[in-house]
Write a protein that binds this DNA or RNA. Structure first.
Lengths: 199, 199, 199, 199
DNA sequence: AATGAATGAGTGTTCATTCAT
DNA sequence: TATGAATGAACACTCATTCAT
C-alpha cells in the first residue's frame, strides 16, 4: 500500500528545506565554485543522489538558495520601518538592533547576507542571477531613512545611497566574521551605527 | 653573446611578473576555486603551458600571489607611521589618505587587500597558507594608533583590536567595490575615518 | 476467505503479464540500454518499485521478455507447416499470410520479431542470452520449405539458409516499420514472397 | 617555440576524423544509449578527455556522425544516376552493384547505412536530429527509377515509394549483417534486385 | 502488494597538469 | 622557451535497485 499522499508531501518538504538550509551555509562559506556536491551531501548527511531528487542541478540549487537569501521578508520589514512616524535615529536603532540580534543568533542570517551581498557585488560569477532585486530595494529604503536623518541633522552628510551601501557593507563584513571566525569579538550596535551617524 | 643571458633572465622576470600581476586580479575577482587555469591563461594572453613554465602548480602560483599581497612594504610603512611623533588623529589621516589614494589609482592594491583579507577570514579554503602574518601585524600597528587615539580622546572607545579590524574591514569593503563595480561613488577619507574616530 | 488466495494469485499473474507486455513493446522500441526503469514504469503506469516485486532486475525482466518473444508456439506451427503434404509455394503462402495478418493486428507480434531478430544479430549486447534457439530453428524450417520449393522449381536458386534468412530479414524490416512509423503503407504478401520466389 | 600553425591544424583534423570514423562504427554497433564514452575512448585508443577536446558532448559527437552518415555524396550520385539516359533496369544494376561493392569493402559504409536508417525509422530516440533529409531524398530518387522501370515493364507493380523503401530496407538488413555477424554469406546483387524487379 | 524517497555505483564532463614539438 | 593537444583524476549527474511505510 502506498504511503499517504500528505505524509509523502510532508517528507519531501522537510528534506527540501534541510537541503536548502544546510546548502545556504555551505555555499556562503565555500562559494559556488568551491562547493563540491559530494562534500555538500556529506555535510548534510545524505547521498549525492538525494540532492538531485530535489534539485535539477548544482546551479538550480544555488539559485533556489539565492531566492531565500534575497528574502522578501526583510524587504517588507524595511518598507514598514521606513514608513514609521519616528525619527531617523530611532529607525536606525531598530534596524541595527534587529540585524545585530539576528546576526548573533542565526548563522543562517549571516549566510543570507553574505551570499546576497556577494551576488550584488558580482562575486560568484557565471550564474546568471539577475535577481538580487530585493537587496538593492533594501538599500533604497535605508537610503530613505538616511535622507530623513540628514534633514534631522542626526546623520552624516553625503550621498545617502553611498552611506546606505556603506552601512550594509559593514553588515556584510560582520556576517563574514560570523561565518568564518569561531571566536569573534562581536561588533556593537554603536559601531554599526557610526557608519552613518553624525559624530 | 654575453648580453643575451642577462637579457634572457630579464625577459623571464618580466613574464613572471606579468603572470603574477594579472593572476592577482583574476584570483581576487574569482577566488581560488573559481579560477580555471585555462581562463586565467586566456585572460593573460598566454598559453596554459606557459604558466607551468613559471610556476609549479595553481597552488604555488596562488601562494606566490599571496606573498605579494601580504606585502612587507605596507608593514614597514605602518611600523614607521605608528612610531612617528604625531597625534593619532594625524597618523590616521596619513594612513587613510594613503589607502584612499592607492585604492583610487591601483586596481592591484584593491586586489591585494581583497585577497589578503579573504585569507585572513578563512575564505578561499583548502590552501595551507598559515602565512597571513604581515596582515595581522598591520592590524596590530593600527590598533596601537587607535590606543594612542583613545588616550588622546580622539577615537571611539572599545577594544582597539576590534576597531582596527573594523577599519580594515571597511577598506576591504571598498576594495571589493573597486574590483567588482565599474562605476562607483568612491568612499571618502572621512567615511573611512568615521569607523574609529569619536563623533 | 478460501477464494482470496487464488484471486490473489490471479491478480499477481495479471500484473506480471501487463508488465511483460508493455515492457516487450518498450524494449523493442528503445533497446535494452535505451530503456530506463523509471520511463518504463511511467509508461506502464506503475511505480518503479512494483517492477521489482515481479522481477529481480532489469536484466531478468528483459530475459523473461525474450522467452516470450522467442515463442515455442511459432516454432510448433512452423514444424507442422514444414511437414504438411502440400507444395512449398502453398506453404510459403500460408506462412506469409499468417505473418502478414499478425503484423497488421498485433503490435506485440512486431515487437517479438524485432527483439528476437536483434538478439540473433547481436544488437542489444551485454546480455548473456545464448538462448535465441527457437528463432534459428524457425529459420531452419523455413529453409526446408525453400529447399522443397527449389526442387519444385518455384523458388529462387541459391543457399536455402541464406534465402530463409533474407525472408525473415524482410519480416524484421516490416516489424520495425510497424513499431516506429505511425502511418505506413503496409508491405503486401506478394512483396514478402518475392524475396524467395522465382520471378 | 610553438608548433607550426598548419601542422597543428593538420593534427587536429586527423584526430577529429579518427574519432568520427571509429565512433561511427561504435555507435552503429551499440546504439547511442549503449555507447559509453569510456568504452568508446578505449576502443579508439585515446583518453576520454580527448573526445571532449574535439566535441562538446556525446550528443554533439553523435550528431556530427549522423551528418557524415547522411552523406551528400550518395545523394549526388543518386541524382546523377536517376537522370542518366539508360533503362531503369540498368540503373538498378549500377546502384545495386555500387552498394554491394561498398558493403563488401567498407564496414564504414554499412555503419552509415545502419545509423541513418535507424534515425529515419525513429530508433535511437531522444536526439532531436530532424536532419535525415538526404536519406529520404535518396528514397525519392530510387522511387523515380522504379517508376521508370514500371513503365518499362521491368519492375514490380505497386507504390514506387513503398518499393524504394523496401529496397533500402534490404540494404539496411545486410548492413546489419555486415556489422554484427563475422561470417556471413553475403547477399548477392540478384537477391537485392529481386525486391523490386518483376519476376 | 505497492509505493516512491533514498541510495551509490556508474556514466558523462571538466580541468589542472604533462609533454612532444 | 612557448605552445596547445593529450591526459586522467576529480567532479557533476543518472539510474538501477532497495527499503521503510
Amino acid at each position: 500500500m502506498p504511503k499517504s499522499k500528505e505524509r509523502c508531501q510532508e517528507i519531501r518538504e522537510e528534506m527540501r528545506n534541510t537541503i536548502l538550509q544546510k546548502s545556504l551555509l555551505y555555499f556562503a562559506k565555500n562559494g559556488f565554485a568551491g562547493t563540491k556536491i559530494s562534500d555538500l551531501a556529506r555535510n548534510i548527511g545524505i547521498s549525492q543522489g538525494t540532492i538531485y531528487v530535489y534539485f535539477e542541478s548544482k546551479e538550480e540549487l544555488f539559485h533556489e538558495i539565492l531566492k531565500i537569501a534575497d528574502s522578501k521578508e526583510m524587504l517588507t520589514k524595511m518598507k514598514m520601518l521606513a514608513a514609521m512616524p519616528v525619527s531617523a535615529k530611532k529607525k536606525l536603532r531598530i534596524l541595527s538592533e534587529t540585524i545585530w540580534n539576528r546576526l548573533a543568533k542565526e548563522e543562517t542570517f549571516a549566510a543570507m547576507i553574505a551570499l546576497s551581498t556577494q551576488m550584488l557585488l558580482g562575486q560568484n560569477k557565471g550564474y546568471s542571477s539577475e535577481e538580487t532585486i530585493y537587496q538593492s530595494k533594501i538599500y533604497k529604503y535605508t537610503s530613505d531613512i538616511i535622507k530623513q536623518g540628514q534633514k534631522e541633522k542626526s546623520m552624516a552628510a553625503g550621498s545617502s545611497m553611498k552611506l546606505a551601501d556603506y552601512y550594509w557593507g559593514v553588515v556584510y563584513l560582520y556576517s563574514l566574521k560570523r561565518l568564518f571566525t569561531t571566536e569573534y569579538e562581536m561588533i556593537s550596535v554603536d559601531d554599526l551605527e557610526r557608519t552613518v551617524l553624525k559624530g
